[in-house]
Design a protein around this nucleic acid. Structure first.
Length: 604
RNA sequence: GCCGACGUAGCUCAGCUGGCUAGAGCGCCGCUUUCGUAAAGCGGAGGUCGGGAGUUCAAGUCUCCCCGUCGGCUCCA
């Protein structure tokens, strides 16, 4: 087994070698930091010339020369004063700043909490060949021992992650102990590229963008809309089992709604403002749905007998993300949430959470993704609103429900929202990547802000608790994950086109037989198409394969005479390679059942 | 928003250092063919080279502005 710290030492050493190479190749380099990251390392540089991706080969070449010379990593310990004198003299202001921070706070972490840690008295430097760098250590013995690496991208990055600081040039590399591991990693990236939802979305005609509509505002084609509907209908169906009711709200509101909820200042410039030409109202596009939903709750008096009240709505919210952050369907400005809000009593939390966990488990089982959850609790600080006791009780109810559902979970203190504890769901996709999807959040604050009440058994006014939940999270984000998870090979119930009927020739009886099947299929609400193009059968089969249609029926003389078909089944759906001849009626009935029960494999 | 790369037909892309009527494959349309489980043959249409301004005898190619896309901007000696 590989020593886990070895790879980290290798990556860290590579960061030094990268810096050494850059120092050799460019003038006046000011060095930032060069840490180890997942799968590799990076180093930040401040230099006059711009490095672009085409320069990486040159830098790599220099790095390999340094590696070949097998310089030992030599450590030297200096007191703070000597150290900062040395970096100052060397013209390295960033390093000097780091040393000063170490002297004061004992850490360079800009986000480090509290001021309790003491400053350090000594720091260390590491030297390889002609290159010396401030460094805590964690290196291989010499540059020859760094394993396999590849520089893979450059980017701008602000000094210490703060956009007020100068922007530096960051060079990233991936690194592994052996060439084989590196190759495997690069292959995984290759596979991820093939599955990229933007590519598949284009190839399979699922969604489009338009310069005229704007960035981050996807539009869905008929096929893509089927995906949306199948998934969000399923999500809704799972909650309707537990008494959730659909509601509907407009997509705009007066800004007063968010002044009341407290979101006005919080959302800031992410809000889309709308000008009314008829009134003086200041209108905004909704960035969330809960405030609207509280208005429905508050529209009439509620009794303890009415609770829980459960609202459900798949609806789009609008958030003006920073333009550089938009990515395909995973980061958009029109976000459709499969949102729900429960208004309940304190003692009903556990049951409600339990129902949502059951719904989430069912959903992710159907899409074949493994679920993990993270329970986010409050810590001892006073950054949280709401009654302490209520928090304690709610947190233990969350945990009980998670345990009862046998979900794999982690607990994290201090990660809760200021208004309540929450459960985040992580789903693992087919190539092992984790994605944050669903979320369940308790909210003690919004009922307070909006003065929501119900009348209890004694006739007194009581405050309900709100539970926010989205099972898919956002339909767009979920689709981006799901398209990559399936690589576009959707299960039968989701597939935009379920059955492709291919004609062998264009003779009347063939065409009629094919359209007869089409009619029957559509009568059963199955999504079928006929390919009656004047092309070879081979070509039409090929097209059906590329379109990833689950079932293909080839119709010719044989089928017409025997009044039966032998379905061609998409490879990933079949359990056995042999498919038997059957009547059209039987075939369609079976498919109908498979759709209804949302199977993952076919019995055909 | 910032740094970098990029934007040529519906799609994927070629077009070197500015120089004839801007190309290819797939797709689309037409004709021939009537075909049995991953690509039949022939022909045709389709582009104000993302938009605007400028430099030049000449701009897809160079400069500037705008729009859009992509990789990053969280990983802390």
């Amino acid at each position: 087994m590989a020593d886990p710290s070895k790879i980290s030492n290798q990556r860290h050493s590579l960061a030094h070698i990268l810096a050494y190479a850059v120092k050799d190749l460019y003038k006046d380099v000011k060095f930032g930091v060069g840490p180890v990251i997942e799968d590799g390392f990076y180093y930040d540089f401040d230099l006059k010339e711009t490095i672009s991706e085409t320069d990486l080969a040159k830098i790599e070449k220099r790095m390999n020369e340094i590696i070949k010379q097998d310089f030992p990593f030599a450590r030297e310990d200096l007191d703070i004063k000597t150290a900062s004198g040395r970096t100052k003299k060397a013209g390295q202001p960033y390093k000097t700043e780091l040393i000063n921070d170490l002297a004061k706070k004992g850490t360079t972490d800009t986000k480090a909490k509290g001021g309790s840690s003491e400053g350090v008295k000594n720091v260390s430097f590491y030297t390889i060949g002609e290159f010396e760098d401030l460094c805590r250590g964690g290196h291989v013995a010499s540059t020859g021992q760094v394993g396999a690496f590849q520089l893979n991208k450059v980017s701008g990055a602000y000094w210490r992650g703060n956009e007020k600081n100068p922007q530096m040039q960051r060079i990233y590399g991936v690194a592994f102990n052996t060439k084989e591991e590196l190759k495997k990693h690069l292959e995984l990236l290759e596979e991820a590229k093939k599955r990229d939802h933007r590519k598949i979305g284009q190839e399979m005609d699922l969604f489009v963008f338009s310069d005229l509509v704007g960035s981050g505002l996807p539009m869905f084609t008929p096929k893509g809309t089927i995906l949306r509907d199948q998934l969000s209908n399923f999500s809704n169906e799972l909650r309707e089992r537990y008494g959730y009711q659909k509601v509907w709200i407009p997509h705009v509101t007066k800004k007063e709604l968010y002044e009341a909820s407290g979101h006005w200042s919080k959302f800031g410039d992410e809000l889309f403002l709308v000008t009314s030409q008829e009134t003086n109202d200041e209108i905004v596009m909704k960035p969330m749905n809960c405030p609207h939903h509280t208005r429905i709750y508050a529209a009439r008096p509620r009794s303890y007998r009415d609770l829980p009240i459960r609202y459900l709505e798949t609806t789009t919210v609008y958030r003006d993300e920073k333009s550089g952050e938009l990515v395909g369907l995973s980061r958009v400005r029109s976000i459709t949430q499969d949102d729900s809000h429960v208004f309940c009593r304190d003692d009903q939390i556990e049951v409600e959470i339990n129902n949502l966990l059951l719904a989430a488990s069912d959903l992710y089982k159907a899409v074949e993704m493994n679920l993990k959850v993270r329970l986010s609790y409050r810590d001892e600080s006073d950054a949280y609103l709401g009654d302490q006791k209520l928090w304690q009780s709610a947190q233990s109810q969350l945990k009980k429900a998670v345990e009862a559902n046998k979900l794999e979970f982690v607990e994290e203190e201090g990660e809760a929202a200021f208004y309540g504890p929450k459960i985040d769901f992580m789903a693992t996709d087919a190539i092992g990547r984790e994605h944050q999807v669903a979320t369940v959040q308790l909210d003690f604050v919004m009922p307070e802000r909006f003065g929501l009440v119900y009348t209890d058994t004694a006739g007194a006014e009581r405050r309900p608790v709100m539970i926010h939940c989205a099972l898919l999270g956002s339909v767009e984000r979920f689709l981006s994950v799901y398209i990559e998870h399936t690589a576009g090979r959707f299960p039968i119930w989701v597939a935009p086109e379920q059955i492709r009927i291919i004609t062998v020739n264009q003779e009347d009886q063939t065409t009629e037989f094919a359209s007869g099947i089409l009619e029957q299929a559509r009568g059963l609400k199955l999504r079928a198409e006929v390919d009656n193009n004047n092309e070879s059968v081979g070509k039409k089969i090929r097209r059906a394969e590329l379109d990833k249609v689950p079932y293909t029926l080839v119709i010719g003389e044989k089928e017409i005479n025997s009044n039966s078909i032998t379905p061609r089944v998409r490879k990933d759906l079949e359990v056995a390679p042999d498919h038997t001849e059957m009547s059209v009626e039987n075939f369609l009935k079976t498919v109908k059942n498979e759709v209804k029960s949302r199977v993952q494999k076919t019995s055909l």
